[in-house]
């Protein structure tokens, strides 16, 4: 995994709530057996017209948002299915940071496994950030994970909360399996004891 570094980049605005994973990556693109190449399908039904050309009305097709790494969006982002293709598509498109008031559980977890930082802000803060972007399209925010800070030219600076373990893994680009396997002795010991307590669980 890529370590998550401090960066300054364009913040794109998509003012929609309850954006679900079917919208993020439509099911006709789930049949690939690899992890990469989903970015061109991100938000497909909104992003492209029926003839396959870009839909000029769709927020992210706004030229001012080209190259954005930060996505600012409405409540309950990523609800719906557990498909990890959603964060894969988001990361592959180029976003590494999302700012919203809330996320669906599974989606939130999946972000951290794909070097995406989902930042939670309160409603008032989100409104301020959205206004700043609307008034100054193409504005760049600075995200500093180490100090849990976001700075904006409009002065809407804030700090955010994040689980320390997740922060550490993002900063180091550590793979979860690797960190779990550090506890392999305990897993082995637990399994022996689990087998004794619940022998009927074991299929042989």
């Amino acid at each position: 995994m890529q370590p998550y570094e401090k960066h300054q980049s364009i913040a794109a605005l998509m003012n929609r709530s309850n954006v679900d994973t079917d919208q993020i990556i439509a099911k006709q693109f789930l049949k690939k057996v690899e992890r990469t190449g989903f970015g061109i399908h991100l938000f497909h039904d909104w992003r492209y017209l029926d003839d396959g050309t870009d839909n000029p009305e769709f927020e992210l097709n706004n030229p001012a948002f080209k190259g954005a790494k930060i996505l600012v969006t409405g409540d309950n982002f990523g609800c719906g299915s557990s498909r990890e293709h959603a964060p894969w598509a988001i990361a592959d498109y180029g976003f590494n940071t999302i700012i919203s008031t809330s996320y669906a559980d599974i989606f939130y977890n999946n972000c951290f496994k794909n070097s995406i930082l989902p930042i939670v802000v309160d409603k008032a803060r989100l409104t301020d950030l959205m206004q700043e972007i609307s008034a100054n399209q193409g504005v760049q925010f600075t995200v500093d994970l180490k100090n849990q800070q976001v700075k904006t030219p409009g002065g809407n600076d804030f700090t955010f909360q994040i689980d320390p373990f997740r922060k550490e893994n993002l900063l180091k680009g550590l793979d979860d399996i690797g960190s779990t396997l550090k506890n392999i002795d305990q897993i082995d010991a637990y399994e022996v004891q689990h087998k004794q307590r619940y022998p009927w669980l074991w299929v042989s």
Partner: peptide, 9 residues
Amino acid sequence: GIGTSEVEH
């Protein structure tokens, strides 16, 4: 439900 990275995990 879990994501694909967790399936691997």
